[in-house]
Design a protein around this nucleic acid. Sequence first.
DNA 1: ACTTACGGTAAGTTACTACTTACCAGTTTG
DNA 2: CAAACTGGTAAGTAGTAACTTACCGTAAGT
Lengths: 102, 102
Amino acid sequence: MATYHTALAALADPTRRSIFEHIVEGPRAVGELAAVLPVSRPAVSQHLRVLKEAELVVDSQIGARHVYQLNPSGLGALRTYLDRFWDQALAAYAATAESDEE
Amino acid sequence: MATYHTALAALADPTRRSIFEHIVEGPRAVGELAAVLPVSRPAVSQHLRVLKEAELVVDSQIGARHVYQLNPSGLGALRTYLDRFWDQALAAYAATAESDEE
DNA sequence: ACTTACGGTAAGTTACTACTTACCAGTTTG
DNA sequence: CAAACTGGTAAGTAGTAACTTACCGTAAGT
């Protein structure tokens, strides 16, 4: 499911967002991420699964290392959703401001 | 606190997002929202507080009715964050694709 | 003033989620 | 083949968050 919903829920968690931000800067192995973050390696692994299901990252195995890198799909879906939202919000906001002057 | 974080966390919940989407379409009273949604009125009231703290909505009392309407601040902060993110993501993604061809 | 409508707050319950340790599977190196 | 390194999975725990009912203010109408 590549909905904006899963991406939104995935990025709502601070730890998971931190992991994602690291991956945005470039491909990262699981151990690399765990070394930097204040949580255990299994925790990182579980977060990566959520990010993967949200189509925010993709993984590829290189030897024994599992490297995760960005998947633009999820972030794009989220951005599209918010953009549509943003236009709608501005229009409604303008209409409200106008009706206040009547 | 008008961080993108609070807005992100606020919109991660389906019920709360549904409430927000109604408000985006135009100002809504608490009772109106509760009548449409599958949760109780106190639940709606609690969600509205979270949305308010995230600066996604503002409330104004009109007689006995409490009307909530859009506050562009929170949505704007979230959008700014994602936009910055998006550019960074595209650049990193392009760089990765390029290095794959070496 | 009494009643009705509106909505925020308190307290309690349930469900989920982020985390831990322990374990297991695959990969590379000696 | 064995030892070391990689990382995903299982099981259990603790904290949190979304929801309920009950209650209490405040505003408008009769």
